[in-house]
């Protein structure tokens, strides 16, 4: 079995973002970029399934400008066997377009599993995995906190999902799409020898024309603004003062 993992290059999670003065978006120039944390978890899980003997190959895919190759190299250094870079410079794509690209790739690559993060920390959409599954007509297991591929022959996976109010366990036939939640695993660090080795691993370049994907943009970003700032609060000196304020000023207790 082959596992396809989609990885996205996003502004590093620790960066405090700045909205552009012209309100067209968030400033991403000269800002530290990294692999989306949920994608790291997805890749780690794919690697673990391969190491457990249930998969032969892990293929990392990234869609976007040329710098996405860096993200793919990070993935290869973690242990992915090869990378696919779908070059798309034009604009920011909607999850629907990304899902269509991934569907086309799945048609070519025939993976048994597609792993994605549950959401990207920049657009916070939480859509792509579900949409890929729909387009392929495959079952989906979203927000996974535990994945067990049970049987090499029968080809199904049991997945614990993080849902409101607890955990839910599903069993999905392969091929399937799984999106990962934070608690699924602890992604490994790439070691220096692996980083060196990653440089010789292949990254295939593809274009939208190769994949025959029609780019649909039915969502228009009108403007991006900063959220209202909360007005500054006060530091109280004692529990008594705190209770007094909550009672008589805020009227919440």
């Amino acid at each position: 079995m082959k596992i396809l993992v989609a990885v996205k290059r996003v502004v590093d999670y620790a960066v405090k973002i700045r909205v552009k003065p012209d309100k067209t978006g968030v400033d991403t120039q000269n800002v530290k970029m990294s692999m989306n944390p949920f994608c790291e978890i997805a890749l780690e899980e794919a690697l673990r399934i391969k190491e457990a003997g249930f998969a032969k190959e892990v293929v990392a895919v990234s869609i976007g400008p040329s710098q996405c190759v860096d993200t793919l190299r990070t993935g290869l250094a973690m242990g992915a066997d090869r990378g696919i870079h779908v070059e798309a410079n034009s604009s920011i794509f909607l999850p629907l377009t990304i899902a269509k690209i991934l569907k086309s790739l799945a048609d070519v690559e025939n993976p048994g599993l597609i792993f994605l993060g549950k959401q990207a920390i920049d657009d916070d959409c939480n859509q792509t995995g579900q949409m890929v599954a729909a387009l392929l007509g495959w079952p989906q297991a979203t927000f996974a906190s535990k994945v067990v591929v049970l049987d090499k022959d029968k080809q199904f996976a049991t997945v614990d999902r993080e849902v409101d109010g607890g955990l839910e366990t599903l069993s999905v036939d392969l091929p399937a799409v799984i999106t990962t939640d934070l608690r699924l695993n602890q992604p490994r660090y790439a070691t220096l020898p692996n980083i060196m080795k990653a440089k010789s691993k292949p990254i295939k370049k593809m274009t939208l024309e190769d994949l025959k994907v029609d780019v649909k943009s039915d969502i228009e970003i009108v403007e991006v603004t900063e959220p209202a700032k909360r007005k500054s609060g006060v530091i109280v000196s004692s529990v008594d003062e705190l209770i007094d304020k909550l009672k008589n000023e805020a009227h919440v207790v």
Binding site: V11, K16, I17, V19, V26, I121, D122, D123, D124, K216, S217, D218, I219, E220, I221, V222, E223, V224, T225, E226, P227
Partner: peptide
């Protein structure tokens, strides 16, 4: 067909317009 949603962990608000036919 016009909405506001938070992006970047709520550190920015994005005003979007849906222009599709469906």
């Amino acid at each position: 067909n016009e909405f506001i949603r938070p992006i970047y962990a709520g550190n920015a608000l994005c005003r979007v317009r849906y222009t599709g036919a469906g």
